[in-house]
Simulated scan of single mutants.
Amino acid sequence: MKTQQLGRATPLSWRGLWRLCRLDKPVGILLLLWPTLWALIDASQGNVWSWPALALMLGVVLMRSAGCVINDYADRHWDGDVERTKSRPLVTGEVSPQQALILFITLCVCAFVLVLSLNQLTIALSVVAAGLATIYPFTKRITQLPQMVLGLAFSWAIPMAYAAVLGTVPIQAWWLFAANLCWTVAYDTQYAMVDRDDDVKVGIKSTAILFGQFDRLAIAILQLLFLICLIVFAWITLAEPVLLFGLLLAAGMFVRQAKMIRQRERQQCFAAFRANNWVGFVVAAAMAASVYWSQL
């Protein structure tokens, strides 16, 4: 059942705006930054301090925040009926819907201004990125696969990174894209498992509901596809063996996550979701080490 009334909005709450952008919970930003960094490491051969790379990473942070804002705006009538989200700023009235829309537009404009300093291909790709970030929250009412749309949105920074640095999008970018798409759907399914009971009640769709009793198997398959895509990426790019070692570590982390979600307990599913931050870090570190050793 929808929440009948949102709380009364205060004139302006900076703390509420901060929380609305999820800046108090940076794991989501990191999960978007890691694949961007993977692409930048490969495209720039380790030179991630160039302006195109820095502009793209800052833009990713801004668009992640914008995505959170529009997500909460779209869910504002339902979040009050979900245990995990009932204290969000738009539900409590700490931030008004109008303030949220103004913040969303402001963040998108700031991100677009950054992109304007890059080449035309990157600018064109950024339009798709903005569209994916905007429509994702509304797909939860339409399709059982909103995690797929989120995966596309979270992966689109990869071709943008190659375009910003190289002016083109080579074949390995799309293998990296596919890997991240599988990974995102896997960890966001873990995330959706936390809210599954509440989502069924309020009519929100998710892969956790779609997969049902096969949710853990589906996550394992997606994680395996993630590793396979990265192995192909390593073969195409002639990566050093250290990258494969990093993927072996990531596989071990996935095994641990499988144990964590075995009983489908909310706290453990959420912990498994958060643990993916370390998967992203390990892959980034292995890619950086591979590039470094290839240059010796």
Rank of each mutant, 00 (worst) to 15 (best):
G167M: 07
Q213A: 10
A111S: 14
A234W: 03
F211Q: 06
A286G: 08
D81F: 01
E83Y: 10
L101M: 15
E240F: 02
F254R: 01
P146W: 09
V283E: 02
I221A: 04
P159A: 00
T189I: 04
C182Q: 04
R262E: 14
I70C: 09
I29S: 15
D81W: 05
Y162T: 02
T184V: 15
L90R: 15
I41K: 07
A289S: 15
Q267C: 00
S294D: 11
D79W: 13
Q267Y: 02
T237Y: 01
N71Y: 09
L217P: 00
V91C: 10
L54F: 11
S44Q: 06
F254P: 00
N47C: 02
E240A: 03
T139H: 01
P159N: 03
L118P: 05
T3M: 14
V282M: 13
L238S: 12
G280L: 12
L150Y: 08
L40H: 09
G246Q: 06
V165S: 01
G280S: 10
G16D: 07
L243T: 04
V149W: 08
Q213N: 13
A258H: 10
G59H: 11
I221L: 12
P11M: 07
N71F: 10
D42S: 11
Y73F: 15
L118C: 03
Q295D: 10
A284V: 04
T143P: 07
G80Y: 12
V48E: 06
N119A: 06
L222W: 13
N119P: 09
M63F: 10
T184K: 03
D215Y: 04
P26A: 05
L238N: 14
V113P: 02
V255Q: 00
L247T: 01
L181M: 07
G7C: 13
I105L: 13
R64H: 09
L243R: 02
I70A: 03
T106F: 14
N277W: 04
W51V: 04
D75M: 09
S290R: 09
C110L: 15
W14Q: 05
V95H: 07
F112H: 08
L150A: 02
I123W: 09
Y292I: 11
L31N: 13
T237V: 06
E94S: 03
M260K: 08
A220N: 11
T168D: 14
V127S: 04
A272Y: 14
Q4N: 15
Q213Y: 07
A163E: 05
A9E: 12
A39L: 05
I29M: 11
D215M: 00
V60M: 13
A163S: 14
S44F: 05
F104G: 03
S126H: 11
A285G: 07
R274F: 01
L101K: 11
G203I: 07
A250L: 01
L181N: 02
E265I: 08
G151P: 12
Q99R: 09
F138H: 02
V127P: 07
A258R: 04
W183E: 08
M1P: 14
D72V: 12
T92V: 09
W78H: 13
M63Q: 12
T207G: 01
R141S: 02
I41D: 03
W235M: 05
F104D: 08
D199R: 10
A9H: 11
N47F: 05
R15P: 01
V113C: 12
A258M: 14
A129G: 15
S50F: 05
P146A: 01
S87P: 00
Q295N: 11
L101Q: 13
M260F: 00
T189C: 01
C68A: 11
I209C: 02
L222P: 08
